[in-house]
Amino acid sequence: MSDLLETESNTFAANLTDLVQGCVVDAPRFAVVNASNDKQRRIGPEPFEPGDGSGAGFGFVSLVRKCDEAEQPRLMLKIEFRVSLDSQAEHLAVQQSTFGLWVRPDPQRGPRPVFRIEYDREATSKPLAHIHLHAESVELGWIYGTAGLPLPRMQEIHFPVGGRRFRPTVEEFLGFLNREKLFTDWRPGWNAILNSSLDAWNKRQAQATVRNNPEAAIEQLERMGYQVVAA
């Protein structure tokens, strides 16, 4: 099991490296490190700073814009995964993930999140896949206020997005940044790399969906004219 976990984790990290380096100038490579649970691994961009837990973690992916003149990056991405083998110990499964956009308007202060897309496979009190928005909403304040409820901070609300199989991907996240013109200074040819990676993700998710729902898959194939025979 350990050897397969290492192999699959390193393959996942290599795929992330190819994707992000193919889209972002001077992007770091993604590394695999041990998690507190020996059946899991953590994956994120180098450098990883080990420590006692208070300051340990992966670095950011810097987004260098042509309009920025500061020596320190003003925009950056956080992309991290925690993975393990699935219940059959045959395929890699994402246990937790987070990716989002961070901003550093003041070089004397640390980066602050703009929004975060998170996934927690074992979540029970929140949607498995959800978004945190670091913003304010007058309308949301009115909804809570007229109900006599205290207004939570926007970033404390878990907005559901897609569930286990159809949650947002890193590829869709990068495409969103471009489409909304939050960042547009990509490497040449980045879009083809992104689409190829997204196609591979969709194929893996389709295969996982079939593994978990073989009867539904057979029913649909037979409806399309195929004959399915067990080996």
Rank of each mutant, 00 (worst) to 15 (best):
Y144M: 04
G163M: 12
K181E: 13
F99I: 04
G55M: 09
Q96I: 06
R104I: 03
F81C: 15
G175I: 01
S125N: 03
P150Y: 03
S87C: 02
R112K: 15
R121N: 13
E156K: 12
H132Y: 03
R74Q: 15
G51T: 15
A147E: 06
F115R: 01
P150L: 03
I79D: 08
V114E: 15
K126H: 09
P152L: 12
F60I: 06
F58Q: 12
P111L: 02
Y144S: 02
D185W: 04
E71K: 13
D185K: 06
E172M: 06
F173H: 02
L177K: 01
V170Y: 02
S62T: 09
E122Y: 04
F183H: 14
K126Y: 01
D120G: 03
G55F: 11
Q108E: 14
D185T: 08
R179K: 12
A70R: 14
F99Y: 12
K78Q: 04
Q88K: 13
L101E: 06
D86F: 11
P111M: 02
A135E: 03
R121F: 14
P152G: 13
H91P: 00
R116W: 15
E71H: 05
H132I: 04
R116C: 15
L182Y: 00
E122G: 01
Q108I: 01
T124A: 11
F48Y: 15
P111W: 01
R187D: 04
E122M: 03
H158P: 00
V64E: 14
I117A: 07
R112W: 03
Q155W: 09
E46D: 10
L151C: 08
V161Y: 08
R167P: 00
D68N: 14
L177Y: 00
A135H: 00
F159N: 04
R121Y: 14
N178M: 07
P105E: 11
F58S: 14
T146P: 00
E71I: 07
F159R: 04
E90F: 08
H134M: 05
E71G: 11
Q72G: 05
P107R: 09
H132R: 08
Q95A: 05
P150H: 05
P105W: 08
D86Y: 09
H134S: 10
I117T: 12
P50M: 00
D68W: 10
E136W: 05
F176M: 09
K66Y: 04
D120I: 05
Q96F: 07
I79Y: 08
E139C: 05
S62P: 01
A89R: 15
Q95F: 02
V61C: 06
N178L: 05
D106R: 01
C67M: 01
S125E: 01
E171G: 10
E139W: 11
E69S: 15
G53F: 01
R104T: 03
I143R: 13
L128W: 03
A89Y: 14
F58A: 13
S62Q: 10
P73A: 15
P150G: 03
Q95G: 07
L63F: 08
A70I: 05
R74A: 06
A89G: 13
R74S: 12
P188E: 04
F159A: 10
R167M: 14
Q95N: 13
E180N: 06
